[in-house]
Design a protein around this nucleic acid. Structure first.
Lengths: 203, 203
DNA sequence: TACCATATTGGACTAAGGTCCAATTTACAA
DNA sequence: TTGTAAATTGGACCTTAGTCCAATATGGTA
């Protein structure tokens, strides 16, 4: 799925035809605001072909909005009146490409391929993280505490001392953590924790 | 440490003065080839201020060379006659910034700060990886095999079966691995292996 | 050939991890 | 007040992990 946002509706139409002919689904918007209205797309990898200069919210501002809102959709900028600082800023903020008009159809399609690849990777990572996060959310506060200590590699005895409880209790919490996280080993747990950004307390 | 490569020696001089006054050590080169001759700098975080267009090897080509050789030094491009595709390519290839002349001194110095920060991070990661890699290199082939299985979280019994040996032998190898890798727990081992890119065999 | 690194295994033992069943306490909500 | 989730602990028991000492086998090197 490729989204196009350009205030010139004839550009939208033209690009839409081109991109559809390459086998993508397309949806067009004539302003940044209109794109923001759209409910987040969840149907598969997607990217956004975005005009830099538009009345109202500009393409660059829309990118900033999206980054800030945590919407991770790869962006390809197109522009008729761009300059170097603008392109550099867009790239720094994670754009996949920045194409000054006129550009070859091939160039755009190649950029879209890369953007879609990137989107697929992002989505894979995010869904995995979300799955793990759902498991983490089922942990009680104490179980979560234990998890953070367990992934340091500390012994039950030591964790018990840290928490001011008995080794026995740690074993119980730990067992529940393993079960709820669907981890078969500490190695799993370490990797899970890393993937969803769980930090270890300092010893 | 800041390196400057620009074919115009007066530019080198001027930038050199500016950057020195900001508290950095500076070394200048009047061609890409001259910079490549220099032995790799190991004294601390560093970056390269690079002119895009130079006789002989261009700045963009030098960047490509460095990336390909695995020399990870953050690059800030400066140019008098740049264009958007050029800046986009440079940024895609990892440049920290791309400044068309004329630029403010502040802009350059700010970019240098970011580049030096990035360099410090890179160096930290690389030295840590090298340290771990040296430990890995002391492992015998069989010990390395065991390491790869251990970090999957598999039981000694299961690893033994995979290798066609007894559980007892696995314990011995495993003990030596822990010792040589200076790991106190499997959790450590998992993190070490991740940091130096050791892959697990598929079960 | 004698030596050395590597790989393998056994015995004996200690410590650590993990589980099942059962029980108590506390805090908060219906 | 009753109920529920969370936290805590004990006992009994089994499985794993890890270590020390000792021994054997193999392949390559000085």
């Amino acid at each position: 799925m490729v989204f196009i946002a350009d205030d010139d509706s004839s550009v939208c139409k033209g690009l839409g035809r081109l991109i559809k002919s390459a086998g993508f689904k397309v949806e067009t918007f004539v302003s940044a605001e209109e794109f923001l209205q759209r409910k987040p797309y969840r149907g598969g990898p997607s990217c956004l072909v975005l005009d830099v200069r538009m009345p109202g919210l500009s393409g660059i501002e829309l990118q900033k909005e999206l980054v800030q809102k945590g919407v991770s959709i790869p962006i390809i900028f197109i522009t008729g009146h761009g300059n170097i600082p603008m392109s550099v800023k867009a790239m720094k903020d994670g754009a996949v490409d920045f194409l000054p008009k006129p550009f070859d159809d091939k160039e755009l399609l190649s950029a879209i391929d890369r953007a879609i690849d990137k989107s697929a990777q992002l989505r894979k990572k995010e869904t995995e993280k979300a799955k793990l996060q759902r498991r983490v959310n089922t942990l009680t506060p104490r179980e979560y505490e234990c998890l953070r200590w367990v992934i340091t590699g500390m012994l039950n005895k030591q964790i018990a001392h840290k928490l001011g409880i008995t080794e026995k209790t740690v074993k119980v919490h730990r067992g529940r953590v393993m079960h709820k996280m669907q981890a078969v080993s500490v190695a799993d747990l370490v990797r899970f924790a890393q993937k969803c950004g769980i930090t270890s307390p300092k010893k």
